[in-house]
Design a protein around this nucleic acid. Structure first.
Lengths: 109, 109
DNA sequence: TCGAAGGTTCGAATATCTTCGAACCAGTGC
DNA sequence: GCACTGGTTCGAAGATATTCGAACCTTCGA
């Protein structure tokens, strides 16, 4: 069962939801940016250069969180996003590598 | 450039389109069924037990074909679907394994 | 030749997704 | 205390997807 902040347990992460989440280029861009950072990097939601209103940004981060791809950590005022690298890698080995491999130019805004 | 029947070349297969195609449970079900068969199996489009009209079935097979996941071969009267196993495996190693791993019960109709 | 079977395409209904502004709710810092 | 900043939630608009029936096109077989 997802915790009170909407993060599913590792074993509850469903391939269908993950693929659904990754089907969107905006969300793939976020995941890729996190992948290109260091392993436990925490990034500000505004640090991805998304040309979107904050309502829409919030929506995309919710999808990523509920799919189990990221964890969102409250840091006082703001909320940091962290890739669930090990959880995803254990559950769906190789998947993150595919995202990393995709050329930025192929991820249309 | 896709051939006259709408199959992209191996190197034109885009991750975005593939993920888009695999985000749908019906299409994942088809790909999984093909994966569970022998390598070059050709299957009749009606052989997947999909509870859908033929117009809808045609739609889903088109998405799979245009994404590059399957090849459709005319066999006189009917059209056979064939998984592009090597092309996908070379381009996105490990991806098909993830589809195969998903439990049938998690692929809702 | 003619009909039946398998597929595609078209158009329209429905559902789902993406996007936004506005209202709202924290924490931060003055 | 009060304004400000960062996020969420709530509609509602717009764009996409899914689905179907009907019309059509081939090919096969009687």
């Amino acid at each position: 069962m997802p915790d009170e902040q909407g993060h599913p347990e590792r074993d509850e992460i469903e391939l269908g939801k993950v693929l659904m989440a990754l089907a969107d280029p905006t969300r793939r861009r976020v995941v890729k940016a996190l992948l290109e950072d260091v392993e436990f990097a925490e990034r500000h939601c505004t640090s991805f250069g998304l040309q979107l209103s904050k309502a829409t940004r919030s929506h995309h981060f919710r999808i990523l969180r509920e799919a189990g791809l990221i964890r969102q950590v409250d840091r006082g005022n703001s909320r940091m996003a962290q890739l669930r690298r090990q959880d995803i890698e254990q559950r769906f080995p190789g998947l993150l590598g595919l995202i990393l491999q995709e050329a930025d130019k192929d991820i249309a805004p």
